[in-house]
């Protein structure tokens, strides 16, 4: 695993405040970090920690209140959305709701060509689609003419990844991509993310609440709590030698196989 030190994405003092009526909720509070080329990082936090809000801001689906996001040296405010999304893509938690249920898989995958700058005819598209499906270990004949509800969660999530193989972005934001998938099939999905990095040099950011998963897949981990990143570092360091009390507590709360689980801690 070669890691280059070229920064792919830099997040500087990113803040998001949601206003509803008179109430102001600071969902993301002055968050800064960077993601390097070919790097896999995880943003770990419990529900309500603001991690999904960050994901949406990085994906340019949500405007930040202040702070900046720099992609390949350019503020994303100055990058055309279409060009940005050619380079930065996302995968969401629930593969079923990520698909328009009225379209068959083939149509959904053909739609993803829209973001590319080159235009393809349907025949060329289908060739690429078939290749992409094969690289996620799906027999194209099994799925192309099917509707999302006719497929399993694991198949659907792999199709979402096939879409990434088509677009070939430089950065992928994966929001809880395995939380709806049985553990037994999870390994297959994780393997595909590895393959994305190996074959296309994609940087990947996992957004997850699963500390075990983050530890297993990431080079670096950022721990988020109440809108702030409380601890960041290499996976080994953050999980095995946490510094921050919140991180320590969080890791203690997770049951493992070989350590006793401290059940009677007061909080």
């Amino acid at each position: 695993m070669k890691l280059s030190n070229n920064t792919r994405l830099e997040v500087r003092e990113l803040t998001k405040i949601f206003v509803s009526g008179r109430r102001k909720i600071t969902a993301v509070d002055q968050v800064s970090f960077e993601i390097h080329e070919r790097e896999i990082v995880s943003l770990v936090g419990q529900s309500g920690s603001g991690k999904t809000t960050i994901a949406h801001m990085i994906l340019n689906l949500l405007k930040s209140t202040s702070g900046s996001i720099i992609f390949d040296g350019k503020d994303i405010k100055d990058i055309k959305k279409k060009i940005y999304w050619r380079n930065v893509q996302g995968i969401f938690q629930d593969p079923f709701s990520s698909f328009n249920q009225f379209f068959v898989v083939k149509k959904v995958l053909r739609d993803s060509f829209k973001i590319l700058d080159k235009s393809f005819n349907n025949e060329e598209k289908d060739k690429i689609i078939i290749k992409a499906l094969e690289s996620v270990n799906i027999d194209p004949g099994d799925v192309l003419e099917k509707y999302p509800f006719e497929l399993s969660g694991g198949q659907m999530q792999r199709i979402m990844i096939a879409r990434i193989f088509i677009i070939k972005p430089k950065l992928l934001i994966a929001d809880e991509p395995t939380s709806m998938i049985d553990s037994i099939l999870r390994a297959n999905i994780l393997k595909l993310f590895e393959k994305l990095r190996e074959k296309q040099g994609t940087s990947i950011m996992f957004i997850t609440h699963d500390i075990g998963l983050a530890y297993y897949v990431s080079d670096r981990i950022f721990i988020m709590h109440r809108g702030k990143i409380v601890e960041a570092g290499s996976a080994e360091q953050v999980i095995m030698n946490p510094n921050h009390t919140y991180t320590k507590g969080l890791i203690e709360d997770v049951p493992t196989l070989h350590k006793e689980w401290i059940l009677t801690k007061r909080s």
Binding site: S183, Y215, P255
Partner: peptide
């Protein structure tokens, strides 16, 4: 296929 945050997990 269990993934937990404990020593040795990353090599598994």
């Amino acid at each position: 296929s269990i993934i937990v945050p404990e020593k040795g997990m990353r090599e598994r």
